[in-house]
Every structure is written in C-alpha cells, then in structure tokens.
Simulated assay, not measured.
Amino acid sequence: MTLQDLGYNESLETYKIENGLDAFEVGRISLEHKERYVIKTPDAEFDAELIGNIKFTAKSRYDFPAVGDWVAFIEYDKGKALIHNVLPRHSILERQAVGKSGQVQIIATNINYALIVQAVDRDFNLNRLERYLAICNASKVEPIIILSKIDLITKAELKERLNQINDRLKNVKIIPVSSLPNGYTDLENFIEKGKTYCLLGSSGVGKSTLLNGLSGKELMKTSHISTSVNKGRHTTTHRELIVLKSGGILIDNPGMREIGVTDISGGLETTFDIILEYAKQCKFKDCSHEHEIGCAVQEALKNGDIDTASFFNFKKIKREKDHFESDTLERKKKDKNLGKLIKNVQKQRRNTKY
C-alpha cells in the first residue's frame, strides 16, 4: 500500500513542501474520539493527539481534524504521535450538530462520493433522500443512491421505487444491492482504487452488512432483523475509515436520525434547481411562493411541472437553513462581545496599581 492508495495526491505534497513540513510524516485520520485520533499510513497506525498550539489557536470546529483528514505528524514513542498540521481539504461533508444551535458536525472530509443508503422497505423516504442530496451538493461531493435490501421486495416493487426516485430526483446515479450472492457486484464495479466513499443513511438500512460484503470479511457486527419494524438494529457506533479489498476507501458512519442542513451554499440551488428556475420568473423578487399574484412557482405547481411534495420539502429545508444562519450570526455576535469583555477585564487588571 502507498500514500496514493489512501488518497494522497500532488496538491497535498505541494502544500507539504511549500509549508516546510518535510520533516513530518503524513497520514490519514481513520478514527476520532474526543480529540484523540488514529492516524493510518501505508505501513502502520498511530494513536495521536494534537499539539497545544492547534488546541489554543483553533477558532472553530473546522480547525480540528476529522475522519478523512490528512495530517502532518511526528511519532514521539512507539505507536504514539503528535499532530502538528491539518492539510487542506477538498471537501467537507457536514450537518447541523444535534442539539447545538448554530453549530456544525463534520461527518467526514476529503470525500469523492457519498453513498446514500436507503432500504427499499419501510425506510424508503424521498424527502430524506433530498436532504442527503442537499448536504452532498453543498459539499461538492457526488451523491450515489444505494437501494439496499432489494431481495425483500418483488421486481415490480423495485421498478416502482426506481421510477419514484427518477421522477423526483434528476441525474442521480442509483445502484440497487442485496445481501444475496453477487448482490454487490454493480457497486463493487463502481468503486475505484484510491477514491474515498462515505456511507450515509439511517439506522438499520444495511450499511454494516454492505460494508462487510464489500470488504469480504466481517468488519462490522450486524444485528438480526427486528420482526416489529422489519429492519436491522443499528450497530455502527463511530466513524471509521477502511481500505477495501478493491482498493477503494470507505468511511462508515453511525445512522443519522436527524439530517439538519447548515448554510449549504449552493446545496439548495443544485438539489432543487427546477423550483429555483421557476422562482426567477416570479413577478416579485421577494416572492414567498405562497399566495402572491404572478408567482411562477405556484403556476408550475398547478400545471404539475413541480412536484408538490418536493416543493414542501424545499420550503422546510430552506426555513432550517435560514434559521441556522440566524443562529450562527447570533453566536458570532455573542462570541465577539465576550471577547471584548475579556480584553477589557485584562486591560483593567494591567492598569490596576497594587
């Protein structure tokens, strides 16, 4: 295995040289847990932590490593390392941090393709697929829809699922898979050596089973299917970067119940491009697309040119985006005021004569 097999490229090497990092080793973050990390290299794995300078100068979550990042490090003891630098990312897959207003959670970095796994049985949900597409499009990560558990339905039912997706979501590649023999052949043929793929999906859709099938061995434990809800119990508890037998790099993720969008610049425009194209034709620039006279979007809805369910999903996601942006501005304002307060206190202390 080489660094290139892990996704290393010329631009990262150029950055390393231009920033005087020749004395450091480079590796990729394969695990992360509360500022403790595992770095993977072609020859070894290292338990790692950050140098103090990164911790104390960090301004946001983006300044800390995440699974998928390339880092420059030094081994200070056998199997132990200190991270000195996080190399530039070409993509960041993120969502709203659950329960933390205005904050982001980085799902993974340096991703080429997002494999959006959705079971064809009770988990099938077009609104959720659109949400995943929005965060992928915002991150400039190409989405691929993986329809799992197709052995649980008939060919006619599978065709209906495919038609539903194609009618509503345009120009997205779909790969059906099953746990039956040769059920992953199409997906295996798609995966390229040195490219990074990130698994996304709800709990119990078959991500761990899929990972085991692609790797050729049981890397993740899987649970029996629950007879009450007809889906597997979720077993993945952490994000992990794994090199497959095919040479592809796969990042597994815990199931996500909530897919809160961030500011997703460009994500909405790409995912709901049809709606926004009609919006340009509205009579008023600030049209809410509800009851205004001359609303091209409402006219398109009446004519069936815009899918009604997709429109309401768009409205909901846009409200979340606007709310997130508002919360983020409020947090920045509070942080700025707190910074001023601390500086004033420090200044008063310096001027106080004892």
Score class of each variant (00 low, 15 high):
Val104Lys: 15
Gly247Glu: 03
Lys155Phe: 06
Leu129Glu: 05
Ile293Phe: 12
Arg257Tyr: 07
Ile342Ser: 08
Thr41Cys: 04
Leu244Lys: 02
His291Gln: 11
Ile153Gly: 04
Lys332Ala: 02
Gly232Phe: 06
Asp263Ala: 05
His291Cys: 09
Val98Met: 07
Ala66His: 13
Ile29Asn: 06
Lys332Glu: 15
Leu329Thr: 05
Gln103Gly: 02
Lys159Ser: 14
Arg168Leu: 07
Tyr113Asn: 10
Glu32Gln: 14
Ser326Gln: 11
Ile225Asp: 00
His238Phe: 14
Leu268Gly: 09
Leu82Ile: 10
Pro143Leu: 04
Glu192Ala: 06
Tyr278Thr: 01
Cys287Gly: 07
Gln281Met: 14
Gly79Thr: 09
Val117Tyr: 00
Asn230Asp: 14
Lys217Ile: 06
Val98Glu: 13
Phe190Ile: 00
His33Tyr: 10
Lys40Gln: 13
Leu133Gln: 05
Leu338His: 08
Gly232Trp: 01
Leu199Ala: 09
Leu133Met: 15
Leu133Pro: 03
Asp305Trp: 07
Tyr62Phe: 13
Glu160Thr: 13
Lys302Ile: 06
Leu219Gln: 11
Ser288Phe: 09
Lys159His: 10
Ala23Cys: 00
Ile191Pro: 08
Ile74Asn: 08
Glu160Asp: 11
Lys343Val: 11
Glu188Val: 12
Ala134Thr: 15
Lys217Asn: 14
Asp167Val: 00
Ile17Thr: 13
Asp252Ala: 12
Gly20Met: 01
Asp123Gln: 05
Val38His: 01
Asn137Lys: 07
Ile342Val: 14
Phe311Lys: 02
Thr185Ala: 07
Cys287Val: 14
Ile17Gly: 00
Leu187Gly: 10
Gln96Phe: 00
Gln298Leu: 07
Gly99Glu: 09
Glu320Ser: 11
Gly248His: 00
Gln348Tyr: 07
Asn230His: 07
Ile275Gln: 02
Ile259Glu: 01
Glu240Trp: 05
His289Thr: 06
Leu199Arg: 08
Leu147Tyr: 00
Ser202Ala: 15
Val120Arg: 04
Cys287Lys: 12
Thr196Met: 03
Phe284Leu: 12
Lys318His: 02
Lys159Met: 11
Phe124Val: 04
Glu188Gly: 06
Lys334Glu: 05
Asp5Asn: 13
Lys343Gly: 05
Ser148Glu: 04
Asn137Phe: 14
Arg131Ser: 11
Glu299Arg: 10
Leu250Ile: 14
Ala23Phe: 06
Glu299Ala: 12
Lys343Asp: 13
Phe272Asn: 06
Ser202Val: 12
Thr352Ile: 10
Tyr354Asn: 14
Phe124Arg: 10
Asn19Cys: 08
Lys40Cys: 08
Glu292Ser: 06
Pro88Arg: 01
Leu115His: 03
Gly260His: 07
Thr2Leu: 13
Gly52Phe: 08
Glu192Asn: 13
Asp22Arg: 09
Ile135Ser: 01
Ile92Ala: 00
Phe314Cys: 12
Val71Asn: 01
Gly213Met: 11
Lys80Ser: 04
Lys316Ser: 15
Leu21Gln: 10
Asp22Thr: 11
Lys40Thr: 15
Asn337Arg: 12
Lys318Glu: 14
Phe314Val: 10
Ile150Val: 15
His323Gly: 00
Val205Ile: 12
His291Asp: 14
Gly79Tyr: 08
Thr14Gln: 14
Ser60Met: 03
Leu329Arg: 12
Gln281Ser: 05
Leu93Glu: 13
Val229Ile: 15
Ser91Phe: 00
Gly201Ile: 10
Ile225Met: 08
Thr209Leu: 04
Gly27Ser: 09
Ile39Tyr: 07
